[in-house]
């Protein structure tokens, strides 16, 4: 792999370099113009002032950051629901991943594809599915027909958002868990049994610690995109449960307060970065090698 490229670039070093630079140009442009420059602009904007017509007016103030606590509810809502649904994903996903890794036999590939398939199809339509299931004519109507009264309200609640998140993000938890459980050395389990440990003790002392990297990766994969979630709280929370994503859309597209919106976006990025740092800290402490690089 390492010697190979040299062979490709062999005819004329200078020309080879020019070709390499040319091949990287579009990607460099995109990363620069649509990733790095915009993030830099967001940082600059977050210290600016709102111009009377909306948008940005140059300035150097911390006021936008100091005003962030007024959107505290959105951040708290997002964090609480993100943590709760990550935990629920782990609780539901672990036994499934364990089953797929150890007991599914020859159907394993098919079953894995069936986990991935809904995840790759329209997010919007899958969330809409729960919009109708939890709506007045869905489960509440069925419960009403069964004699439950008063009919429970499911849509536009925290519960609805929780279901929507778990439904959409569960595969992100199952896959890394599956990878770490599938790699688990079965001889360790036998050794544990030989030493007289019961099923539960073996799970707690051998399987769970060894699959921790998968669990942490899965938690991260669920947690990060959820922090920016907009569709689920909007559609299943009916705008009553506000997420950071909703606050951002509101600030940028409705009230056009770009400086404040930028500060909120930077706040969101900081929360994500802090989470990733904690993740990296946790995983570098443990004996994690492959699972991380795999993801």
């Amino acid at each position: 792999m390492v010697q190979g490229p040299a062979a490709v670039a062999a005819p004329g070093r200078g020309r080879g370099r020019a070709v390499t630079a040319l091949l990287l140009t579009p990607t460099s442009l995109w990363y620069l113009l649509l990733l790095l420059v915009p993030l830099a602009i967001l940082i600059v904007f977050s210290f600016g002032e709102r111009s009377p017509v909306g948008g940005y007016h140059p300035g150097l103030t911390l006021e936008n950051y100091l005003r962030l606590p007024t959107r505290q509810a959105a951040f708290v809502n997002t964090l609480v629901l993100a943590v709760a649904s990550t935990a629920l994903c782990a609780l539901l996903g672990y036994p499934l991943a364990y089953y797929l890794a150890t007991r599914a036999g020859s159907r394993r590939t098919l079953l894995l594809i069936l986990i991935a398939l809904p995840f790759l199809t329209s997010f919007l339509i899958r969330t809409y599915a729960w919009f109708t299931i939890l709506g007045a004519n869905g489960i509440p109507a069925i419960l009403g027909a069964l004699g439950v009264s008063p009919r429970p309200v499911l849509l536009n609640t925290h519960f609805a958002i929780l279901i929507g998140i778990v439904y959409n993000y569960l595969p992100l938890m199952v896959f890394p868990l599956y990878v770490s459980l599938e790699r688990l050395d079965k001889r360790l389990l036998e050794a544990s049994k030989d030493l007289g440990a019961g099923r539960w003790a073996t799970f707690r002392q051998v399987t769970l610690p060894l699959s921790a990297p998968g669990l942490i990766s899965g938690a991260l994969l669920v947690f990060i995109p959820m922090m920016g979630e907009y569709i689920i709280p909007n559609m299943l929370g009916g705008g009553k449960v506000f997420f950071v994503g909703n606050a951002l859309v509101d600030l940028f597209l409705q009230s056009r307060n770009w400086p404040f919106g930028s500060a909120a976006a930077i706040g969101l990025i900081m929360v994500v970065l802090i989470t990733v740092s904690i993740y990296l800290f946790l995983t570098s402490r443990g004996r994690v090698q492959r699972e991380v690089s795999q993801l």
């Binding site: 113009l33 649509l34 990733l35 904007f45 990060i224 920016g228 951002l248 859309v249 969101l268 994500v272």
Partner: peptide
């Protein structure tokens, strides 16, 4: 890696601003 993990909403805002 950043382009993949960054929430879509941030990409949306960043692109709009740019």
């Amino acid at each position: 890696y950043i382009a993949i993990v960054i929430p879509g909403i941030v990409i949306g805002i960043a692109s709009l601003v740019f």
